[in-house]
Every structure is written in structure tokens, then in C-alpha cells.
Design a protein around this nucleic acid. Structure first.
Length: 439
RNA sequence: GGGGGCGUGGUGUAGCGGCUAACAUGCGGCCCUGUCAAGGCCGAGAUCGCGGGUUCGAACCCCGUCGCUCCCGCCA
């Protein structure tokens, strides 16, 4: 017999069906046993008249909550039952996997354990419908991203995560033994995305792991996370990259709203707003002035940079003035940007770069890249870098590489913003942090 | 890496110098009942993170340590 999902039971009144799921609650009475069965699509009451089968009854009596069951029974329309006015009269039951009792915690209790404890028992925590929906949304997000990319002629790449030389600064880098030498875990696919531009791929994306040996303990950092990266050729400036990103994100939001808007409202209490394009753009120079005018005091050593508090302040300014949840902060000073960001024509102290702030959280950094090898090398030297380890990268641009740019976006950060989650550890399947390597 | 906060039965909390450590939930037993956030009674379960100190007396005060957490730095 084929399995029936709980959501489809209404259409199977008076038929015998097979259900598979978890024992959410057992109410064992003198003559009757009620098993509340859960599968990913819902809950249903299974009723057993004990005198029918006393052996089965005593079997059921011993079942712990969360036991995995296969149940066969007849679907009955019963207005008395509060749970969807529906019940299944039990005919037979197979215990697929008994749940030990007591459970480490009850995922369906009124008060949940602290997040850190729940992460210890992540597979129990993930049984909550809340988490199921969360990852359905993430799946749709990624699907929508890909739909949009494929419509726009993108190619997917998978760049290596084992590196022989540190890309960029060398800080925040995990190193490991690699036979007789040292290897590093990629803290960005940056160089390889650009290599694809040199390869003539023109438009590429990658969704893959990123590693940062960054000992930060915040609600928005992880040492391993999923990066969403893209790179496009033949751009005129970073404006082209921003224009692409906002349209792409608008599409992603629209798709998520289309498929999960109702469920998100119900479960997360969030009315998903598909963002209007274009997103507001504020050059950093103006952003600093805006903060000043609002009385926000930036730390003295910031030199054109903005701290997270300032980012939140700008976000609320944008909300007030533009009624928008997103804002591009553009034209960052060279001091706070990597050497490969192209400089702004007319002001060599600024870069053709941007961050995307969503509800006050930084979710993206992007830029037009410097594709002229001499200038790139010069900028690297200015930053105090040695050319030798990055020479292979500079060489990408020696044999005909189009002007290009792109961005990187944190998948979990986007999910966090979209569902208004307080902590990124809830927005990721398995969290990795400085003191968290298990499970 | 810097600063603040918190560690009490399985879990969530209360107690903050005199406790035989309280409550809820979960767990075990019994009773009642077509139950449905079920109800009632009984019971097991914590040397109050760990180490040291102050005190007649420490879960409570002090120091150290470990863990967690939040903020800052840094970032996606």
C-alpha cells in the first residue's frame, strides 16, 4: 500500500490508508487509545478501541513520544474530533524505531531549551514545523536564485576549497596538513570567480562553503557558511552589479512569497514584502553626513567606514525616507576595501564598491574589480601585499580579460533577514563557530 | 581579541547569608475519563558548573577557572 500524507486524508474518507510518521502524543485511556501522529504535512488522530486487540493495546501503551511508526487504518469523518474533524481507526501498527524515554528534550513543549542546548540535539530541534518551513524557504530561495540566473545565461562553477596560497589578506584563514605541505581552506571563491571571467564565461555563480577563522561571537557570524557568489563581465561600473542584484533579489522574494507567504506569516509572523527596485543607493560620503545629522557618533578611527550600529541607523533612515528595507552603501574609501576593487574615476581615494544592507544587516559586499594587471599589482603593493603569492591571480588579467564585477552574499544572513530571525545559528542547518564543531 | 551578563533536578525558571533548595514541564506508578494544551493522586530526580577563600553558617559574598550568552572589533 502506498503511503498517504496527512494533509491528503480529507480526500480519503472511509478508505484504508497507510500513514508514516512520529508519535507526537499518546493518550492512553481505559477503553481507548489516541495516538497523535505527525508527518511533515500535519497531525492526525489515530484511535484504537482497546478491547479489539489487547496485545496491540499493551504494545501501544509502551510507546514513547517521537517513536517512528507505520500505521494502517480507516479514515473517518468525525465532527467530534477537534483536530480537523478527522480520525483514523487503527487496524495495524509497526514500530519502525522506538524513541527512548525520556527524550533529551521535547521539541513540542511550550518552553524550548536554550538555543545552544538545542544545537546539541539538532535533529530533535529540526523536527519542529518551524524548522521544516525554514529549510523549505531556503530551498525555494536557492531554486529562485538559480531560475533567475539560468534565465540570464549564467554558468554554475564549483571552485576548490583547498588552496595552496592564502587569497587576500591571510588573516582569518584555516590551515591544515596537506601531505608534505600546508593547505588553506578558501575564505572566498573570489579569485576563482574572476578566473572564470578570464576564461570567457561572462556570467557565473557559485553556491558553496566559505571558511573564516574568525573568532567572533555574534548572532550573525559563523566559521563555515554558505556563500552565494556571482561575477559578470562587460560591466561599466559597480552600478551594473547592483542593478543585477536588486532585480535578482526581487525575484527571489517574489518566489518565496508566492510559495510560502502564508506559511511564513503564520509561523514567523512576518509579512514578506517583495522589495521595490531600484533599491536606495547612498554613497558612503553621504552616509557619514546623514549619520552626523542624526546625531550618531561614529568611532573616531573609522575613517569613512561605518560600524554595525551606524549601519542599523542608516537602515532606519532609509526606512523613514524611502520606506525601503534594503540600501546599497556605495563608493567605499580604499582604506577599508581589498586591493582588487577598482577605484572610482575622478576620486582615487574611493572604490567602485558597495555593501547591501538589509534590515540593518550587512548581507553583501560587491564591486567592480580591477582587471588591468599593472594597476592591480600597484594597488596590491600599496596595501603592503607581496606580489609573489598572488602573481597567479594577477596573471589572469594578462591575456584578454573583460571588465567585470560581482558580489558575495551570505545565504543564512539572507534567510535571517527574510524571516526576521534573531540568530544566524537558527538559520543554518548545522552551525559552526569558534567553540562549536559538533554535531 | 576587548567589555558586560548568566551557569540551581532531563528541560525552563524561582530562591541571592540560616533550606530538609521551591515551581512548571517531562519521567515512573495508580485512579478517572471518546481523549483532544486532558484531569486527579503518589513517586523518583539537583551534593545549586568546577576549584579555592571569607563566615558560626555559602546556591547566595570574594578570587580564580571553565562553559554559555550579549555587545564591540571584523565580516557574508
Amino acid at each position: 500500500m502506498e503511503r498517504t500524507l496527512i494533509k491528503d486524508l480529507r480526500g480519503k474518507i472511509d478508505q484504508t490508508v497507510k500513514l508514516q510518521g512520529w508519535l507526537q502524543t499518546l493518550r492512553d485511556q481505559k477503553k481507548m487509545q489516541f495516538l497523535i501522529l505527525r508527518d511533515p504535512t500535519g497531525l492526525v488522530q489515530v484511535a484504537h478501541w482497546k478491547p479489539n486487540d489487547e496485545i496491540l493495546a499493551s504494545n501501544i501503551a509502551s510507546l514513547g513520544a517521537e517513536t517512528a511508526l507505520t500505521i494502517i487504518g480507516k479514515v473517518i469523518d468525525n465532527p467530534v474530533v477537534k483536530l480537523n474533524q478527522l480520525e483514523v481507526q487503527l487496524e495495524s501498527l509497526v514500530v519502525e524505531n522506538l524513541a527512548e524515554s525520556p527524550l533529551p528534550f521535547d521539541p513540542f513543549a511550550e518552553t524550548l531549551p536554550a538555543l545552544d542546548y538545542r544545537l546539541d540535539w539538532r535533529y530533535m530541534d529540526l523536527r519542529r514545523a518551524y524548522n521544516y518551513l525554514l529549510f523549505q524557504v531556503q530551498t525555494t530561495m536557492e531554486m529562485a536564485m538559480r531560475e533567475y540566473w539560468l534565465k540570464h545565461d549564467f554558468i554554475e562553477i564549483h571552485s576548490p576549497k583547498l588552496m595552496g596560497t592564502p587569497s587576500e589578506s591571510g588573516a582569518e584563514l584555516f590551515s591544515l596538513d596537506y601531505f608534505e605541505r600546508k593547505a588553506y581552506l578558501a575564505q572566498s571563491p573570489q579569485f576563482y570567480k574572476q578566473m572564470a571571467m578570464a576564461a570567457g564565461f561572462e556570467r557565473i555563480f557559485e553556491i558553496g562553503p566559505v571558511f573564516r577563522a574568525d573568532p567572533s561571537f555574534t548572532a550573525r557570524h559563523m566559521t563555515e557558511f554558505t556563500g552565494v557568489d556571482l561575477e559578470i563581465s562587460w560591466i561599466d561600473s559597480h552600478e551594473d552589479v547592483m542593478a543585477f542584484e536588486e532585480n535578482w533579489l526581487q525575484y527571489v522574494y517574489a518566489r518565496v512569497k508566492e510559495l510560502h507567504g502564508e506559511a511564513i506569516k503564520e509561523t514567523f509572523g512576518v509579512e514578506l514584502v517583495v522589495p521595490q527596485v531600484p533599491f536606495p543607493r547612498i554613497p558612503m560620503r553621504d552616509a557619514v553626513e546623514i549619520l552626523k545629522s542624526r546625531g550618531y557618533v561614529l568611532p573616531a578611527d573609522k575613517k569613512g567606514d561605518i560600524d554595525p550600529g551606524g549601519e542599523r541607523e542608516i537602515a532606519s533612515y532609509v526606512k523613514e525616507i524611502y520606506d525601503h528595507d534594503f540600501v546599497f552603501l556605495t563608493d567605499w574609501p580604499i582604506g577599508v576595501r581589498p586591493f582588487y576593487h577598482m577605484r572610482l574615476a575622478g576620486d582615487e581615494t574611493l572604490t567602485r564598491s558597495f555593501d547591501l544592507i538589509a534590515n540593518g544587516l550587512e548581507i553583501t559586499t560587491g564591486a567592480q574589480r580591477e582587471h588591468r594587471p599593472e594597476i592591480l599589482a600597484k594597488q596590491a603593493l600599496e596595501k603592503g601585499l607581496h606580489l609573489e603569492p598572488i602573481q597567479y591571480y594577477i596573471d589572469f588579467f594578462r591575456y584578454g580579460c573583460p571588465p567585470h564585477g560581482g558580489f558575495g552574499l551570505g545565504l543564512s544572513r539572507l534567510l535571517m533577514v527574510m524571516l526576521n530571525l534573531p540568530n544566524i545559528r537558527e538559520a543554518v542547518y548545522i552551525f559552526r563557530g569558534p567553540t562549536r564543531l559538533n554535531p
